[in-house]
Simulated scan of single mutants.
Amino acid sequence: MVTNNLKKIYATRMSSRSSPSVELTNIDGTTYSYSVGYVIPAAYSLSGRDNNCYIAVGSGNTAPTINDVSLENEITTLSNNGIVLNNNENGITYTAILTNNTNADITIKEYGLYVYSGGYKMLTRTVLDNPITLASGEIVSITINIAF
């Protein structure tokens, strides 16, 4: 589900030719005003959460709402091998590769797309109908498509 943060970014961006400001909600619930031009990144490859966007996974199973600002229960024990963004006239595709380097199975029930601009902001959240269980050493690819 697309969150209010993403709706605000695109509604503000489409209504102005400049780089207008928009008030977004961080993971911790605080709000800040940011220039829309700096929130949505261009196409490139990234590695992990230390960059300005990432896909997080979690074990929560509560249905997503438009007001979500974080995953219900983020899983931080998987290795994030990076994220690739591809922009075109039809939308943006984000793909992350995650590896289970623990000694136990890990079950993914939810995932979300975050961007960083003065704090992480959730743009989308999805709860899976069929959870993904990764055994030790297994790899999963999570792809989020946002169509225009």
Rank of each mutant, 00 (worst) to 15 (best):
I92G: 08
T76P: 07
S21Q: 13
S33Q: 10
C53E: 14
Y38T: 15
N145E: 09
Y116Q: 13
Y32M: 10
G91T: 01
L78I: 08
C53M: 14
Y34D: 14
I75Y: 06
L6A: 10
Y54G: 11
V115Q: 04
Y34C: 10
P131G: 02
I142C: 02
V69D: 05
M1S: 03
G37P: 01
K109D: 01
Y10L: 13
N86T: 15
I106T: 06
I142K: 00
E74P: 13
Y116H: 14
L128C: 01
M14D: 12
D28Q: 03
I92T: 14
L123G: 01
S33K: 14
D28N: 12
A11E: 14
T107E: 01
D28V: 00
S117K: 14
T93F: 04
E110I: 05
T30D: 02
L113R: 06
L128W: 04
A43T: 15
T126R: 05
E74A: 10
T133Q: 00
V39T: 09
P41I: 12
T124I: 04
I66E: 13
I139R: 09
N81D: 14
I66R: 07
G112W: 02
E138T: 01
T95C: 03
E110Q: 04
Y116C: 12
S70T: 13
N87S: 11
S35Q: 12
A135N: 14
Y44V: 15
R125V: 06
Y44Q: 15
L123E: 04
S19R: 07
L78W: 07
N52F: 14
G91P: 00
G48T: 10
Y114L: 06
I146W: 06
N130Y: 11
N87F: 09
N145P: 04
I146M: 04
N103F: 08
E72Q: 14
S18Q: 11
Y38D: 15
Y111H: 08
A56W: 07
A43M: 12
N4R: 11
A96F: 00
D68C: 00
V39I: 15
L24D: 01
N80T: 06
V22T: 04
L98Y: 03
S70P: 06
T62Y: 06
L128T: 04
S136E: 01
Y54R: 12
N5F: 02
T99K: 10
P20K: 05
P20D: 03
I132G: 00
G119W: 01
V57G: 03
T143R: 05
Y32D: 11
N52Y: 15
N86M: 10
N73C: 07
G137L: 03
R13Y: 11
N86G: 11
T76A: 08
I66P: 04
